[in-house]
Amino acid sequence: MPICQICSQREASLFITRNLNGQKTQVSVCRQCAAESGIVKIDLNKLLAGLAAFTHAQDEEEEKNVEACQGCGMTLAEFNTTGRMGCSQCYGTFAEPMEHLLTRIHGHARHIGKHPGQTEAEESALPGDLERLKSELICAIAEEAYEKAADLRDRIRELERRREART
């Protein structure tokens, strides 16, 4: 295993190619040094690009990089070099490889947060709050505060209904 070029102690687990004045140099660093030095941030492009290339190669080796986004003309080959999308339509065009990529980056591929036009009532009832409301309900029942409990029960029902509607 190669050794980290920054601390010269730990095993290097990230290998980053940098383009300095037209000259390519490879840097090997450990996770810790990468995090501390901010190298990871800079080279996230490369990392993303690598992942996209990987998933794409698996899916359709043949048609590689032919499809272009109708919104901006970007191809997967271009995404592979920049790590950036050209327009919002790109996500639809490359939905399948994107889903793989997003799952790798975030551990999920489905959004559960805010959406445009969300009302305040909806907002105060986002999934993160469901558990809190349930424990509040238990307390309210224990305290025999039935009016409050009824209100909480309604909010929980509404939240669960909306959560189901979205999945």
Binding site: G83, M85, Y91, A109, H111, K114, H115, P116
Partner: peptide, 27 residues
């Protein structure tokens, strides 16, 4: 929320708010 009253933001039901870099997508 205030801005979204007059601006139509790029949003997808599955992926959430769409961003230039996939590391920022969703919320």
């Amino acid at each position: 929320s205030f801005l979204s009253e007059s601006i139509d933001f790029a949003y997808d039901n599955k992926f959430g708010y769409l961003t230039c870099c996939p590391t920022n997508i969703g919320t």
